[in-house]
Design a protein around this nucleic acid. Structure first.
Lengths: 233, 233
DNA sequence: AACATCCTTATTATCGATAACGCAAGGTTG
DNA sequence: CAACCTTGCGTTATCGATAATAAGGATGTT
């Protein structure tokens, strides 16, 4: 049977653009390798090495590495080198808590500013997630997942906070993907966003708060829920 | 009468080192100008301009600007330029909430790992704050204040979260300084850290939590406490 | 053997020059 | 007149080469 694709023609502008900048292309490539674990934590990344491998200059590599450092995916030590950042459960749990605080405590602002363009963008990203899930592309799914939550948060209009959420999201997904089972139900991950859109469309702030809080707290199973205790849902 | 200085010989290693890197020196200088408001929000920072002004190459300026971008003090738009970041009350309040979450929710870890070197460092930083306050150097006071809270947090050993706290601290102080009155009681700011050290020395986690929470929530007066409502103290 | 010092090597940091980009102003074409 | 192209300018992005740095090993001294 013919599996239909959802229309995602409006999506490209919602995802951090893959500009013509070589440094950004390199940044995106390395980001993917790190999140997927193809570059293991602790692995050394030397600038001239990467420059030769990607056929660009050292400056371009440096720029990409600084962008990765900004997201906390690599650690740069002056004159010492760059290494892939660790991926601990403790950090992951703390970052999830912060993400919960950031996304949930600004929902009133989000609901107050919700408009049709926002809802349209979120629906498009939902469809993009569905397509990625159908193609079993877990990384692409995570890209759209991040874009979804960022688009939602940008509505709160807190530009100085957005980079913090970006950092939390990428590490949430990195931790999740690195401990995910091969046969995960990716479709389910996509569909988990449906009620969020519905509550937002209905401007139902309390329901949205409850849904999003649960959504975030159940992203990763931290086992005996010790690390996230005390989060007020 | 002779006003005595507190011994701060052990402090230099506790403050982000002013390495011999030109880019870092430039980063520190611009950071100060932005936090103090000498560089107003929105002001354009062009790379070649700064390079000429600081007698270094464009690459060095770029590196400094990227470090400032990492802290959210400037906004870089590809091919468009770099501008000093805005300084809104909404963002400031949100960042303060995040800081509260970050510092307070990890106190159990901090108390569990508290040792004498930590307490010695904090006492040294307290003295450094007292000296800065006596010299009426509000910016230097804020530098040591940030170092104090960062040193405390590093004890929690959550390296991926530290950059988030760094960002919150710098913006807290930027917002506070930009709306501070000229005759502020700087000594009081320094002394506010005394009970925190005492509770930590006593390994009294509940008292520490209460003190630190209050300490953070009373840094900036957001007027009718609307923006910080819902923070569980 | 212990220790300081010099040197080698791997790597990052900085430089100066050139290329690419985005915007705005002015001109061209229908 | 409006839509579209072109060109110029200010700026960032990239390049290739050179300088500076840090760590470890080799060397020499006590």
């Amino acid at each position: 049977m013919a599996i239909e694709s959802f229309d995602t023609s409006a999506v490209p502008t919602l995802v951090p653009r893959q500009s013509s900048r070589r440094s950004h292309a390199l940044f995106v490539a390395l980001q993917k390798d790190i999140v997927l674990g193809d570059l293991a934590p602790g692995k050394a990344l030397t600038e001239l090495d990467l420059a030769q491998r990607f056929q660009c200059s050292q400056s371009t590599v440096r720029e990409a590495l600084m962008q990765l450092h900004e997201e906390g995916l690599v650690i740069r030590q002056p004159n010492r080198g760059t290494h892939v950042a660790p991926c601990n459960a403790d950090d992951a749990a703390a970052l999830l808590r912060i993400r919960h605080e950031v996304e949930c405590s600004t929902l009133d602002r989000v609901v107050a500013r919700t408009d049709e363009p926002l809802l349209a963008d979120l629906r498009n990203l939902l469809n993009a997630m569905r397509n990625a899930a159908r193609d079993a592309d877990e990384y692409l799914l995570s890209v759209y997942d991040r874009a979804f939550h960022l688009r939602l948060f940008e509505t709160a209009d807190l530009p100085l906070v957005t980079p913090i959420l970006t950092r939390c999201l990428i590490h949430n997904h990195r931790y999740k993907i690195q401990r995910s089972q091969p046969n995960r139900a990716l479709e389910e991950t996509a569909e988990r966003h449906v009620p969020i859109i519905e509550a937002l469309a209905a401007r139902d702030a309390p329901a949205l708060h409850r849904l999003l809080s649960h959504h975030i707290l159940t992203i990763v199973d931290f086992g005996p829920d010790l690390t996230l205790q005390g989060v007020s849902t």
